[in-house]
Write a protein that binds this DNA or RNA. Sequence first.
RNA 1: GCGCCUGUAGCUCAGUUGGAUAGAGCAACGGACUUCUAAUCCGUAGGUCACAGGUUCGAAUCCUGUCAGGCGUACCA
Length: 577
Amino acid sequence: MPVVIYMRDSNPVREGFSNGMGNVRNRLESMIAESLHSVAGYKDLKAELSIELDIPRISDHGDYASNIALGLTRHLKRNPRQIASEIVANLNDSDSILEKVEIAGPGFINFFIKPAAWYGIIREVLDNAKKYGRLEIQRGPKVQVEFVSANPTGPLHIGHGRGAAIGDVLANILAARGFQVQREYYINDAGNQMDTLGRSLYFRYRQELGEGLEFPDNHYRGEYMLDLAKDFKRSHGDSFRKTPLEEALPVFTDYAAERILDGIKEDLDIFGVHFDNWFSERDLHKIDSIAKTIEYFRERGFIYESEGAVWFKSTAFGDEKDRVVVRANGASTYFAADLAYHRDKFERGFESVVDIWGADHHGYVERMLAGVQAMGRTRDDLRIVLVQLVNLLRGGAPVAMSTRGGEFVTLREVIDEVGKDATRFIFLTRRTDSPLDFDLEVAKARSNDNPVFYVQYAHARLCSVFEVARDRGVEFDPGSVNDEAFRLLNLRQELDLIKQVGEFPEMVCECVRSLEPHYIPYYLHQLVSLFHSYYHDNRILTEDAELTQARLCLAWTIKEVIGNALELLGVTAPQKM
RNA sequence: GCGCCUGUAGCUCAGUUGGAUAGAGCAACGGACUUCUAAUCCGUAGGUCACAGGUUCGAAUCCUGUCAGGCGUACCA
């Protein structure tokens, strides 16, 4: 049974959501779910609906609010306030976490939580620090995340960097929620462009030997090709001076592709992105996979010949037109290779596959989904995340990204100038389908413009508190603190902080459901903002030993959650700043 | 022409699958350091959610149309 990873109630995204019973949200949800069965008419309902708990902006509306009664009105054809009161009347608060429950407005149910109920969250984090927010299960579904997959014809640019950060973090998030994740990079090392690449190097090499050849149009004329030509000359001398292009081409192509790919790997390594598998398109050709895939589809009736070409019937699954897989000249198309590639993915046992593509490939989505469905898979088995383009700016002015001249700012240059952490953080702070302005001056400024430092600073600050505590001889062992002390954490700010910590697992689930990492930076900002404010108004190390222990526990949980969230982002959590 | 994405504060962006009085950062203005890190905190101001209709108890969110920007519309990859 294929696993749909975005379904709200599907496992393992939310299954066993938290390890302990500390999670207030969970207990509330199951309480409501039970109560629903007592609501008149509910059992005969066919519609499925999920229980959504909102955190109201206004504190008068409680700690959590549910609009479940409003959602049921339509189905039950009954007054929402009436439904709400039935739900409330049947709540079984066995753990006694509810201070009071109110029905408000058109039929919202507002839950007010007893302060003591929140303290379980602290215990949970203290016990599971590094695992908090994660789901440890035996054998989660196998998921593949394929990303970057830039052609080995030039160095990575900033747009690839955005895709790299997003793919990497999505893989982290999926892994955190129990999926068995593989990170894969698809190397487009076959086809015309590789010949073009080889020819580009060949001409540069001949020029390097002092020949006055003219460099052909529509070839890779980036500066990196000049360096490659120099290196090639260094290692091969002039031994290819007389070799005709056709004969020499494979050598030049392989040399260029390999060297460029090495560069890509190095850049990704510096960026903190590491792949489990590098899948070469050439291997697809070697095992005749494309022809076999076409035959596979032919047997299923999705292949036909027309106008001398071979077509795939993608319109059978909603694509606007059928697509050519073998051209009239006998060459297979890129799409044919991609069909074979995706068939291979599923044959490798992945239950779900995530592709991260540049948004300029959106026209390609439907045919790929059609391909997947023709394999007998569902549309949901392949999830394509489109990443919008990055506009590179410096001090508000656009940086010329001329592809014509082959001159562009590489990812490597950006990382060198801005730093890995800030670069990743900025990439991850926007929704994937939203275009991103990346201003180099803003990104590298050690200023308030830069949210990454705001977050990292909080972590360093917290570490510093524990440092000072040690220096003052304050003993603290998160594992052996008496929970009785938590009752002293009764300030509004403290309860808000604990509540926010408690939302961490839910937030990660939301990332999985939507395949959007940007919730993490926003969550972090909110958590850290609460902390900075609290830190300003209160002292953690006080004269009162019991209070100090309680606050150190709170500080510890905040520090751990910041650390966990930053780890998901692949951003370092500094001890000092 | 057709298709997809985007349009929310001066700027950059959130808004959890239709919810209560529209959110944050930056910029602007005014305040707070003898303390565990001021890379911090507190406050003020800032809005016709591009526009016009529609759906309903309720719309930034869903539908239709218009406008603006980006991308895509290959027997390229």
